[in-house]
Design a protein around this nucleic acid. Structure first.
Length: 605
RNA sequence: GCCCCCGUAGCUCAGUUGGAUAGAGCAGCGGCCUCCGGAGCCGUGUGCGGCCGUUCAAGUCGGCCCGGGGGUACCA
């Protein structure tokens, strides 16, 4: 079976780094001294050498002044003032006098307690453009994760329920995180922890036996299973015997009852067909699809292991891991009838995954409702002596609400993901017909735009905020949307097509004198740090927000200068070269970011 | 009951882990194709639920109150 326990075995990388009494993740040090912005690196290095404050602290605290007339980067001197025991404005002024200008940093000044740095426009634009031309689609990538493995548990839908718009969150957040970490050099194992086991199957079988409509099962099996699922939950509200019956059926499934097992297989086959169709549409892939049932033969080992460690006890006829000294509810391992629970299976899964992948970090992209569950799970792993328990993270996300109410399959108030995507594709198709009827592959483009709109809607906000679903907004492709980003990308592609040559990165960047050109360069400079932050916080929306900024700056720039001399493509071939190079860099970053989010960067739309 | 999360513009959301004057999109209104794509751009108003505290500095941290939600033993 290949299943064994490696408690207390060190993998060599999992040192306990203590700061503020918090156990550091094994990958935290990977980020600490990663300074991808060359200009911030120069500034923070200079400030560090005159102040003695660690460069990483300074790098992290460099911020954009409220007005670009003050400077392009600012650093608050309060921490240094405290060390030197002088007033912050005095320290700022003194320090500004010490630090020498540089070819890129043309002015060091102070305003009140802030130390400010003004960049040279030409040197900045040139630096960033040459950087991006040199790295192309690898701009912003890194090898800080080289040799390390991250496991991400995402999507993980439950069998026999259609995928609702709510399930999309785990799926697209997890898939984006996977690409973010891969971009930083980590090996990532994406796992679809299918909900293919548990008492819910007992419920489903009970419902199937009672109310299944064979014709409906043939026509649209997933919808029929959904109907049964909702119905049994409704009926069970007033009929306790249904709950008991369901538990009994699940127990027999766990014991291998052939008839129930056959039904179970049938339900899984139906669901997987539907899931795979959606995964294809969304471009989602996994390295492993070991679902809950996969661990069925490993549960006894797990339970016995915990028993041998003396962590368990019987309470109210159930086998539990008491956690009250940590102010947590107990983790239930076995019901009174001996059957397993999701906690049992998650324990076995975590251990199996560590044994199999030797991960440096494992992320569970699961809704916020399961916060307590993961606290219990991680604490139990810690108590069992697994030092990697500190490398387990619940990456939670908020609810999808509908008119202020939580969407939940059981309540029956969900929208089917497939229906939603169909609608957005249809909307995209309509816009194409109206605005760009000569497009050669309108259906393909409509599909990519529609999917992009849906995916982006879930990646555009912080994970933990609940998102309210509104058709009106989902079908609106204006403003802060996926199609807006795709449109900006397509426009730049169109420009470069018109230019007719492949830009090579060489140009006289001193010719770029517009403030928007400077702003774009500075924005492009931020991209690698955004990737870093997105990984540190496990927040893909950081990339989404950044791309909106970037696309917005470009759109403004593009539309503002319309006179023949100021246009990107003008009679002045040297100037055109420089401008096209900058636009090309914007395109590279837009495409890179969209790729990471899982949205197709279109050349025409 | 106990624990956790959340209240920012009419709506949907940001706010760089405590920093300089709280920002976007949508909706509304008013403008912009002598076209490098109008799925775009420009202009225009209102806001941190309330009170007290911590300190040089609070939308951000702490306490209490009000309001909304979630979790809380055999569902996941």
């Amino acid at each position: 079976m290949g299943f064994r326990f490696g408690a207390n075995r060190s993998d060599g990388s999992g040192e306990h780094n203590l700061r503020r009494g918090v156990l550091y993740l094994s990958i935290d040090n990977d980020f600490k001294d990663y300074f991808p912005n060359p200009i911030k690196t120069i500034i923070s290095s200079a400030v560090s050498s005159v102040s003695g404050i660690p460069q990483s602290d300074i790098y992290q605290n460099l911020q954009e002044p409220p007005d670009s007339a003050i400077g392009d980067y600012g650093w608050p001197c309060f921490s240094l003032a405290k060390i030197k025991r002088k007033a912050p404005p005095v320290i700022a002024a003194e320090t500004a006098g010490i630090i020498k200008p540089h070819s890129i940093i043309e002015k060091v000044s102070s305003v009140g307690p802030y130390l400010n740095f003004t960049l040279n426009q030409k040197a900045t634009i040139q630096t960033v453009c040459e950087n991006i031309f040199a790295q192309n689609e690898k701009y912003g990538s890194a090898n800080i994760g080289s040799g390390k493995t991250i496991v991400i548990d995402y999507s993980s839908p439950n069998i026999a329920k259609p995928m609702g718009i709510g399930h999309l969150r785990s799926t697209v957040i997890g898939a984006a995180l996977k690409r973010i970490y891969q971009y930083l050099g980590y090996k990532v194992v994406g796992i679809n922890h299918l909900g293919d086991w548990g008492t819910q199957f007992g419920k489903l079988v009970a419902a199937y036996r009672r109310w299944a409509d064979q014709k409906a099962m043939d026509d649209d099996p997933i919808k029929e299973l959904y109907r049964l699922y909702v119905k049994i939950h409704e009926e069970a509200e007033n009929d306790q015997s249904l709950e008991d019956e369901s538990r009994e059926i699940f127990k027999r499934l766990e014991e291998g009852d052939p008839e129930i097992t056959a039904l179970w297989r049938k339900f899984i086959a139906i669901s997987k067909l539907e899931f795979n169709r959606l995964y294809n549409l969304l471009g989602i892939t996994f390295e492993s699809e070991a679902g809950e049932s996969f661990y069925n033969d490993k549960l006894e080992h797990t339970v016995k292991f915990l028993e041998d460690k003396g962590l368990t006890k019987i309470s109210r006829e159930a086998l539990i891991v008491p956690l009250d000294e940590f102010k947590l509810e107990p983790l239930l391992l076995k019901k009174r009838d001996g059957s397993s629970l999701y906690g049992t299976r998650d324990l076995a899964a975590a251990i199996y995954r560590y044994e199999t992948y030797k991960f440096d970090l494992i992320l569970y992209v699961v809704g916020v409702a399961q916060t307590l569950h993961f606290k219990q799970l991680f604490k139990t792993l810690e108590l069992a002596g697994f030092e990697w328990a500190k490398d387990c993270r619940h990456v939670s996300f908020g609810w999808v609400t509908l008119g202020g109410e939580m969407m939940a399959t059981r309540r029956g108030n969900i929208f089917f993901l497939e229906d939603v995507i169909e609608q957005t594709i249809a909307r995209a198709r309509a816009i194409i017909s109206q605005g760009n009827p000569d497009l050669e592959n309108p259906d393909e483009v409509a599909r990519k735009v529609g999917v992009g709109a849906v995916v982006f809607s879930d990646l555009a906000v912080r994970r933990d905020t609940d998102v309210s679903f509104e058709w009106e907004r989902m079908l609106d492709f204006d403003g802060q949307t996926g199609p807006y980003l795709q449109y900006a990308h397509a426009r730049i592609c169109s420009l470069i097509r018109k230019y007719g040559k492949e830009p090579d990165g060489r140009a006289d960047y001193s010719m770029l004198k517009f403030p928007e050109e400077f702003s774009l360069a500075k924005k492009l400079l931020e991209y690698p740090d955004k990737i870093k932050s997105a990984a540190e916080l496990n927040e893909p929306y950081i990339i989404s927000a950044y791309l909106l900024d970037l696309a917005g700056l470009f759109s403004t720039y593009f539309q503002k200068y319309k006179s023949p001399a100021d246009k990107i493509i003008s009679d002045n071939s040297e100037l055109t070269k420089a401008r096209i190079n900058l636009a090309w860099c914007v395109r590279v970053v837009l495409k890179s970011g969209l790729d990471i989010l899982g949205i197709d960067a279109l050349e025409k739309m």
